[in-house]
Nucleic acid binder design. Structure first.
Length: 136
DNA sequence: GCCAACGTTGGC
DNA sequence: GCCAACGTTGGC
């Protein structure tokens, strides 16, 4: 059974437009155990909301897991892992953090409860709610 | 194994 | 640019 996730990226560093341009990217640099354990749980084909932090602060698109967790080559300690993502599509309209906070149905979302978590799980219900908010 | 200090992230 | 939240590190 496929799961859903949300990843954050600062668009100045790596935006969804960059992912579309590249076609595929290694999602590395995660240095947080909670986030890393979520990366390890990702399966090929799982869909992932792509959230822009700092600039925009909104969910802009959907990506997909193309390669499951493998050692993060950029991590000298070898403790952390990376996955590979491919773009799926942009949302009809982005869903802002303010919109998500304002929706009581999303109050239990991991990313809202723990703002700094850079990779978090999204329940099937929350996934559907956010898609609806995006006009899909 | 606990806890204080420190660093980083991200919203405002 | 500031500040709060939280995870990690290191000393004891």
């Amino acid at each position: 059974m496929a799961s859903h996730w949300l990843v954050k990226s600062e668009p100045d560093t790596y935006s969804y437009a960059d992912l579309e341009r590249d076609g595929r990217t290694v999602w590395d640099g995660v240095r947080n155990f909670a986030a890393a354990s979520h990366l390890k749980s990702m399966k090929i084909g799982d869909q992932v909301f792509f959230y822009h932090s700092q600039e925009g602060k909104d969910v802009v698109a959907i990506a997909q897991v193309a390669r499951e967790a493998f050692p993060d080559a950029s991590d000298p300690t070898g403790k952390f892992v990376a996955v590979e993502l491919t773009p799926v599509r942009k949302l009809a309209k982005s869903v802002t953090l303010a919109d998500m906070k304002a929706n009581p149905a999303l109050a239990d979302m991991a990313m809202l409860r723990q703002g700094r978590l850079s990779v978090s799980p999204v329940s099937a219900a929350d996934w559907a709610t956010i898609l609806k908010m995006a006009g899909e």
